Amino acid sequence: MSYVINVIAQGDSFPEDSLAKVEEFLAGVQISTKVLNACRAVDYEFFLDISEVEAFRANFKVHSFPKGLDVSFQTNIPAFRRQKKLFVFDMDSTLIYQEVIELIAAYADVEDKVAYITTQAMNGEIDFSESLALRVKLLTGIPAGKLWDELKLKIQITQGAKELCIALKRLGCVMAVCSGGFLPLANHIKETLGLDYAFANQLAVDDATNTLAGHTVGDIVDGNKKAELLKTIAQDHGIDTDLAVAVGDGANDLLMMAKAGYGVAWNAKSKVQDLAPCRLNSKSLLDILYILGYTEAEIRELTV
């Protein structure tokens, strides 16, 4: 069966001699090199007998590749790379740079307390639903009237996100944001990026004072819910989950990565990078297309 080692430079170019180090790891197999971007991305394609795959995968997982590279091992079958049909994204620290709950917390001068709990949750040190309840309680009393309009002006879309979504739409992909954040901004991101679905948590408002009530209403979008939503969207569109990709940065994204055919840990917490199928620590989300095997020229055509 055909396999590929995909290598992406985290910076603007490959660190000196870094590709030679990758090729040393591959010395035991006959490789065919496909340049995706002369400065930043390359595929090494090769064949393995089925009896060799597990040993190769085990060696790959423990191997220390040069710093400044993101290296992934994939089955080199078009259906598992270039023919993806569903993308489900996390929002905070993935499609946008900020953690929205921390922006809200600044209104009550409790951002440090909220950020500490957020870090614990994203590292998997505390249950997400529990962490959400603790953080939302700290937001009690914040005026809700202009909150979301003001936050829309503060959030920053991650570099490459718009271009990636343009490309995926042209490729016929269904796209969703499934966020542990909050629905008003998830809907805003959905409209901004042209996504098909937005799911997130809803903050309760005290009608008498028009302030945040300190709790959520409705289902909590935690790790289990994200995985469930990915499966539901796939079923609704008749898409095999093997053709789905999940992208996120936190521990609560790992279950949807496991449900999808492939998962990408985007500038993620260390635990997530260790457990996710693939890691990407570059500056642009558009680099996901290199992971799927697209060349620089093809990406340019998809994004103009």
Rank of each mutant, 00 (worst) to 15 (best):
Q83E: 15
E45Y: 10
I117D: 00
A79G: 10
D109K: 07
E130W: 03
A41Y: 06
L132D: 01
P78H: 07
D112E: 13
E111Q: 11
Q120M: 15
D112K: 11
L69H: 04
K113Q: 11
K85W: 13
I126P: 05
A58V: 03
E99P: 07
S64F: 02
N59D: 08
F46V: 11
A133V: 06
F60C: 02
P66N: 11
Y116M: 10
V100H: 03
I101K: 02
L48N: 05
D90F: 06
D90C: 09
S64K: 09
D109R: 05
A41T: 10
I50S: 03
S131I: 01
D92L: 11
L48W: 06
E54N: 03
S64R: 13
Y107W: 09
V110F: 00
I50L: 07
I77N: 15
I126Y: 01
A58M: 04
E111A: 05
L103F: 05
E130V: 14
V110H: 00
R81G: 09
E54P: 00
H63A: 08
K61C: 03
I117S: 01
F46H: 10
E45A: 13
Q74K: 09
L103P: 02
A55K: 08
K137F: 02
T118I: 01
R82D: 05
V88G: 12
V114A: 07
A133S: 14
L103V: 10
S51E: 14
V100C: 10
E102Y: 00
E125L: 13
Y116V: 08
G124R: 09
V71M: 04
I126N: 04
E52H: 05
F56W: 04
K85T: 11
A106H: 07
Y116T: 07
P78K: 11
F46I: 08
N123M: 11
L103W: 03
Q98A: 13
D49S: 12
K67I: 08
D43Q: 14
G68I: 11
K137C: 02
K85C: 12
F46R: 07
S51Y: 09
A55Y: 04
S93N: 05
K67P: 09
K113R: 04
S64Y: 02
I126R: 14
E52P: 01
F128M: 02
M122N: 04
Q98E: 15
K61H: 10
I96G: 10
I117Y: 00
V71P: 02
E125W: 03
D90R: 03
D112R: 04
I104E: 06
L48H: 04
V62F: 04
I126H: 06
L132V: 01
S51A: 13
M122S: 05
S131N: 00
A55N: 07
G68H: 07
Y97K: 15
